[in-house]
């Protein structure tokens, strides 16, 4: 071993080398940390901007600007059954828009939630790993399809080739070109990946011991899935449902293209309906000048939409947190 001999002897450094000195490196550390903090706080600034925007444009105006709810009373907004900001006799009742939103999100939920959950059960309880590796990316692609494409699909495929042959030709129900049903169906398809992946996570976090206990009692696969695993993951599934419905409520382009722009207080899904989101797109199409009441109504409707989706998201987080506490 001649290793030590080939290396030169070391010189001892003075101990004073430990003292902090002002150096570029040290100054840089501080500056960088500051910059990164600014980055991280930008998300808080975004929220503050959203809140500030709704407060100043919808609740109380500033700088001589009157806000939406200063011109339209909250009571009228919530109880009036007509929404006609573009007509000469203006009505600002959110109910028709709310109705459109609820009907479409409801249809979407009726389709998307059970299918998404069943798919989650299949992936977590039945499917072999190989099949999962094929299906998961396909579902990701499904989730990545832009909503304008779904809207197009509803308008040019589902309405003329699915709804009209079944409901109009067979059952004699009139189906409008734009209708809530086609929009609801595509919204349902859109939320399948959300429900599926979140529910699957919930099902997978149920401990394997519970399943084994179920099988040991002579349960079939079906009994274990539906009577042991699903109840155990219940709150996680509920959270995924809430998030999916919240997404369905906020969905814009598919609904706008599929269901049209006719505010209507009705439960007939084969007529054209306008949702809150579709109204906001519609109002912007006409290039509404700032300062008019139609322009301000954007903020009134937007505020309502923001509060509803925020409420559902917070509720979903609460439920999810409770679920995690049980299993982690």
């Amino acid at each position: 071993m001649s290793v030590a001999q080939t290396t030169p002897p070391l010189t001892l450094k003075p101990a004073s080398g430990l003292i902090k000195k002002f150096s570029l490196t040290r100054a840089k550390e501080g500056v960088i940390k500051g910059l990164l903090f600014v980055c991280a706080s930008l998300s808080l600034v975004t929220t503050l901007m959203i809140v500030w925007m709704f407060l100043t444009e919808a609740v109380f105006g500033i700088g001589g600007n009157t806000a939406f709810f200063q011109e339209v009373s909250l009571l009228d907004f919530l109880t009036d059954t007509q929404w006609s900001p573009q007509f000469s006799e203006k009505h600002f009742g959110i109910l028709p828009l709310l109705c459109g939103t609820v009907v479409i999100a409801g249809i979407g939920g009726l389709i998307g939630l059970p299918i998404g959950l069943a798919a989650a059960i299949y992936l977590s309880e039945y499917a072999k790993p190989k099949l999962r590796r094929i299906i998961k990316p396909l579902l990701e692609i499904l989730a990545g399809v832009p909503s304008v494409v779904y809207g197009y699909f509803a308008l040019v495929f589902i309405t003329p080739y699915v709804l009209r042959p079944i409901f109009q030709s067979l059952l004699g129900i009139d189906v409008d070109v734009f209708n809530a049903m086609s929009a609801g169906i595509v919204v349902g398809v859109m939320i399948i990946p959300t429900v599926c992946s979140l529910s699957e996570d919930a099902l997978r976090s149920v401990p394997g011991g519970l399943r084994e206990a179920g099988y040991a009692l002579g349960s079939t696969n079906f009994d274990v899935s539906l009577k042991v695993v699903v109840p155990a993951a219940f709150s996680g599934i509920v959270a995924s449902f809430l998030l999916a419905i919240s997404r369905a409520i906020g969905e814009t382009m598919a609904v706008c293209i599929g269901a049209g722009l006719m505010p209507r207080l009705s439960l007939n899904p084969f007529r054209s309906m306008q949702t809150m989101t579709a109204y906001m797109v519609n109002a912007s199409l006409g290039d509404t000048p700032a300062g008019t009441i139609e322009y301000k109504s954007l903020y009134g409707v937007g505020f309502m939409l923001f509060l509803i989706t925020l409420g559902m998201n917070i509720l979903a987080q609460r439920v999810m947190k409770r679920f995690r506490e049980v299993y982690e």
């Binding site: 450094k13 004073s16 430990l18 003292i19 902090k20």
Partner: peptide, 19 residues
């Protein structure tokens, strides 16, 4: 470390770890 307190407030921990 060689008679110098390494936890003293004016010690640069980075310089310490180099030594």
């Amino acid at each position: 470390l060689e008679g110098q307190e390494i936890y003293a407030p004016d010690v640069d921990v980075v310089a310490l770890r180099k030594r």
